[in-house]
């Protein structure tokens, strides 16, 4: 490592490589995300988690749909699929059924997973397909210019809700829990350590897991909603976040304004037979497999 900068007072020692560089595709970096966007923090937590868990990188697969969040599959150096808009979950389901040895994770945005792709989420969770879904919720369609989406809070301003949003948003952990997800958690990108641990947990857990990451998108959501730049939005998270693992479904609703808290935590951690467990059990009972 070169140490050219260490003599000036307070100057941090300069190097050329980062300890997680080997997990990322260096030929694709730097990433395209805006300054102050939280997606880079979310990706770093994921890179750290897949390196820490006891699952060989060769057995891990990462899928995304389309959007700013969707770029993640292109940056992480495991087998990955950057699928069509909204369709990462069906690809993931196919992969897991065809090769149950794989640890399959979908990392995508709120619009991709819950607007165009909402139906797939419903059925993968219901079937308890053993995959992990990580949703970066920035409350808008970041990539296409900050339009309103299915998680945009009531009253929030986006480019398509100029007078404020009149629609009720989805409450993602509530939805995932109601569909039978075996692990459900929510953190903001300020809760790096909790988030990284939750990712480790989800990767190792059998069954359908869901993590929601509340993330600053200063361009599409922060500025129009007076949350400011990325740093100011993280300060807002620090002020308003409450860790409450036993939160009620009502408490999980996000308002992202005024004095309303941002309730985060590990909301669900349970067991339920997976799709493949049930298949095996039933076919065995009928004597169709040994």
């Amino acid at each position: 490592m070169s140490a050219k900068g260490a003599n000036d007072k307070g100057r941090i020692e300069t190097v050329e490589e980062h300890p997680l560089d080997h997990i990322l595709r260096q030929d694709r970096l730097p990433h395209i995300w805006c300054p102050g966007c939280g997606l880079g923090s979310a990706m770093t937590c994921y890179a750290q988690a897949i390196e820490r868990v006891d699952i060989p990188l060769k057995k891990q697969v990462l899928l995304s749909g389309i959007g700013c969040t969707g770029r993640i599959a292109g940056y992480v150096k495991v087998d990955s699929y950057h699928t069509t808009h909204g369709r990462a979950i069906p690809f993931a389901t196919g992969l897991k059924i065809a090769n149950p040895e794989l640890c399959v994770t979908v990392f995508s945005g709120d619009g991709d997973l819950f607007a165009i792709g909402g139906n797939h989420f419903l059925h993968a969770a219901r079937r308890n397909i053993d995959i992990n879904v990580i949703c970066v919720n920035n409350f808008n369609y970041g990539m296409t210019g900050g339009q309103q989406g299915p998680t945009t809070p009531v009253e929030a301003r986006t480019t398509t809700t100029r007078y404020g949003n009149f629609e009720h948003p989805l409450n993602l952990p509530h939805l995932a829990a109601a569909l039978g997800a075996v692990y459900v958690s929510r953190w903001t990108t300020l809760h790096c350590r909790h988030l990284e641990k939750s990712m480790e947990k989800a990767l190792q857990k059998r069954g359908f897991t869901f993590i929601e990451i509340i993330c600053p998108c200063p361009v599409g959501f922060g500025r129009p909603n007076k949350l400011g730049e990325g740093l100011e939005e993280l300060r807002y998270y620090r002020e308003k976040s409450v860790i409450k693992n036993d939160a009620s479904w009502d408490e999980m609703v996000l308002h992202m304004r005024g004095e309303e808290p941002i309730v985060v935590g590990d909301f669900v951690d349970t067991e339920r037979p997976t799709y493949l467990d049930l298949e095996e059990q039933m076919l065995r009972a009928k004597g169709l497999i040994k």
């Binding site: 941090i12 980062h18 990322l24 990433h31 939280g38 880079g40 770093t44 937590c45 790096c192 990284e196």
Partner: peptide
């Protein structure tokens, strides 16, 4: 290690 995890650019550790 908090600075490393939160840095969106993998610039500090």
């Amino acid at each position: 290690n908090f600075c490393m995890l939160i840095c969106p650019e993998l610039a500090i550790y």
